[in-house]
Amino acid sequence: MKDIFSHLCQNQKSELLEFGGELDHVHLLIDFSPDVAPSKLVNTLKTISSRMIRKEFAEHINKLHINKFYWKPVFWTGAYCVISAGGAPLEVLKQYIQNQEEPE
């Protein structure tokens, strides 16, 4: 997933600086151009990553669906949170993300 997000960010005039997360969400530290709308970037990341992950792991996702663990018809929810780092040291932000549990 990290590779997917990194590649997609590059295509959107952005750079994925840090990746981490928990079982039900991810944390991304992204440096993006001022002319990139955060909502459009998030939409692109969710849409394309969902398509790629569903394609690559279709058999696994179908098994999860049968077992009622993965029962939603969508990969990501519509919700997201964007926080501006506005001057916070990048090392502090990276450390926060690294301290989160790794997504499965």
Rank of each mutant, 00 (worst) to 15 (best):
I61W: 13
I61V: 14
L16N: 04
E18I: 00
G20Y: 01
Y70M: 10
L17E: 10
A37F: 06
A37E: 07
F69A: 15
I53C: 08
G21P: 04
G20P: 03
A58D: 04
L16A: 04
R51F: 13
R51L: 14
L16G: 04
L29A: 01
K63F: 10
N62Q: 08
N62Y: 08
G21L: 04
L45M: 01
D35G: 04
P34H: 10
A58P: 01
K68G: 12
H65K: 07
A37Y: 02
L29C: 04
M52E: 03
I48G: 04
K46P: 05
H25E: 12
W71K: 12
L17Q: 11
L23R: 00
L64S: 04
E59F: 06
K68A: 10
G20I: 10
F69S: 15
L45G: 03
N67I: 03
N62V: 11
S49R: 10
K46L: 03
K55F: 10
N62K: 11
D35Y: 05
D24Y: 14
L45P: 04
H60Q: 08
H60L: 07
H65A: 13
N43L: 15
A58H: 03
K63Q: 14
F57E: 08
K63R: 13
L29E: 00
I61E: 05
E59T: 14
A37V: 09
M52T: 00
L45K: 01
H25M: 07
S33F: 11
I66N: 14
F57I: 12
A37W: 02
S33I: 05
R51G: 07
H27E: 07
L28Y: 08
K46H: 07
L17A: 12
F69H: 15
W71Q: 14
H60Y: 06
I30V: 12
E59K: 08
T47R: 06
K55M: 05
G21S: 02
H27M: 06
F69N: 15
L16K: 06
V42G: 07
E22D: 06
E18G: 06
K40L: 13
L17N: 10
E59C: 08
R51I: 11
K63I: 15
L16I: 06
V36H: 02
M52K: 02
